[in-house]
């Protein structure tokens, strides 16, 4: 096992076909960072753990398709996770296909695990990033986003408060969220 610790991720994936323990080392190396990534991207702790499980199961099933071209293997793994997250957002639930194929049970996420996952992520940088991103918006757009998202007001009321038409309010909120998303993309 100690020898595996010195291998690169690509070497570990290659070794997995000979020795399943190699995948355990690969998993241990990335598991917490991946869960933290999913949690930061908006998944709750339980869903983040669920998505991470499916991501690693799919990575294991797809390992023969990974080509070591010098690109960090983590990018490949996080790419799979990003797919899983987007599918989950659309369907409202984490997939289980890869886990079913491997016969991995869906694990119950206990309270302690939830607390530990939450502790993996420091939201202060995200808060600072959001403040910085909001500061970059024009006052009209910032107010529109604030009223609609932070205060959860319906569009007609947002429009009344901003003194504009409902259509204009929608455009401002949409533009603001797009700009915020672009700025927040730099937050891992």
């Amino acid at each position: 096992m100690a020898a595996y610790e010195d291998l690169s991720d690509a070497e570990l994936l290659a070794a997995t076909t000979r020795d399943p323990e190699a995948f355990g080392v690969f998993y241990t190396r990335h598991a917490e960072a991946l869960v933290a990534y999913l949690y930061r991207r908006g998944a709750c702790a339980e869903t983040a753990a669920d998505l991470a499980a499916e991501t690693f199961a799919q990575a294991f099933l797809s390992r023969s398709r990974y080509r070591d071209t010098g690109v960090p293997c983590a990018a490949w793994l996080f790419g799979i996770a990003r797919h899983q997250l987007h599918r989950c957002i659309r369907s409202g639930k984490a997939e289980q296909r890869a886990r079913r194929r491997l016969g991995i049970p869906v694990l119950e996420v206990d309270d302690e695990s939830i607390q530990r996952i939450e502790a993996l992520v420091d939201f202060e940088p995200m808060k600072q990033a959001l403040i910085a991103a909001l500061e970059g918006l024009s006052p009209a757009v910032k107010n529109a986003v604030s009223l609609r998202v932070a205060h959860d007001l319906p569009y007609p009321e947002v429009a009344v408060r901003l003194g504009c038409s409902e259509g204009t309010a929608r455009v401002r909120v949409s533009r603001g969220l797009t700009m915020l998303a672009a700025r927040m993309e730099t937050t891992p």
Binding site: A31, A49, F56, L102, I104, D110
Partner: peptide, 22 residues
């Protein structure tokens, strides 16, 4: 190789077991 999140530790064990089975 203990992970700090219990469910992740269990998942790792399940994955290695599944890898052996595969």
């Amino acid at each position: 190789q203990e992970l700090s999140v219990p469910v992740l530790q269990r998942l790792g064990e399940e994955l290695v077991f599944a890898a052996r089975r595969s």
